[in-house]
Computed example of a mutant assay.
Amino acid sequence: MNTVGIVSNIMGQTVALDWHNDTVDELLAKFSSVNSSVERTGGFTSIERNTLFQVVARNNSLFIDMVGKLGIKDRSDTAWNLSQYEGLHEGMRKEFELDERFRVS
């Protein structure tokens, strides 16, 4: 049962990262648009300023969700309390590249 818990936790995290990645791509597109406009004009319109604040706020919310709610940087309780499961936990994290995918999100 402990193995199932670790596997399901990692699978849940990888699915959540995929879902969040789509949102990150949308935020990057908005930021790129605002950035191009500022580069051309040298300033923000009020709409661009509001968009930039919304992008930053949404980015912060995503980060809080991934770290706080998903525990993307945490070791599982099972791996923490039962050392024989640590290898499984770390192996799956590496297999699904959770740290790398989180870093580039």
Rank of each mutant, 00 (worst) to 15 (best):
Leu27Tyr: 05
Arg101Ser: 00
Phe31Val: 04
Gly91Trp: 07
Ser76Leu: 15
Ile72Asp: 06
Arg58Lys: 15
Leu88Arg: 12
Leu98Val: 05
Val104Met: 06
Ala16Trp: 05
Met11Val: 11
Asp99Phe: 08
Phe44Thr: 06
Gly43Lys: 07
Phe44Gly: 01
Leu82Asn: 10
Thr14Ile: 13
Gly71Gln: 04
Thr45Cys: 12
Val24Thr: 03
Thr78Asn: 10
Arg101Thr: 01
Gly87Gln: 14
Phe63Ile: 04
Tyr85Ile: 11
Val56Leu: 15
Gln84Val: 11
Gly71Pro: 03
Lys30Tyr: 02
Ser36Asp: 04
His20Ile: 03
Asp25Asn: 09
Asn50Val: 09
Arg103Gly: 05
Ser33Met: 02
Trp80Gln: 10
Lys30Trp: 03
Asn35Arg: 13
Thr41Met: 02
Met11Trp: 08
Gln13Arg: 15
Thr45Trp: 11
Asn81Pro: 00
Thr14Glu: 12
Glu48Phe: 00
Ser8Arg: 14
Asp99Lys: 06
Ser105Cys: 10
Thr78Ala: 10
Leu17Pro: 01
Phe44Leu: 13
Asn50Arg: 12
Thr45Tyr: 12
Thr78Asp: 13
Thr78Leu: 15
Gly12His: 12
Asn50Ile: 09
Val104Arg: 03
Ser32Thr: 07
Leu62Ala: 05
Leu17Met: 03
Phe96Asn: 05
Glu39Met: 10
Glu95Phe: 15
Asp65Trp: 09
Ile10Leu: 10
Gln54Trp: 06
Trp19Arg: 06
Gly42Thr: 11
Asn35Pro: 04
Leu17Ser: 01
Asn50Tyr: 12
Ser32His: 05
Ser46Tyr: 12
Ser36Thr: 01
Thr23Val: 15
Arg49Ala: 15
Val15Lys: 07
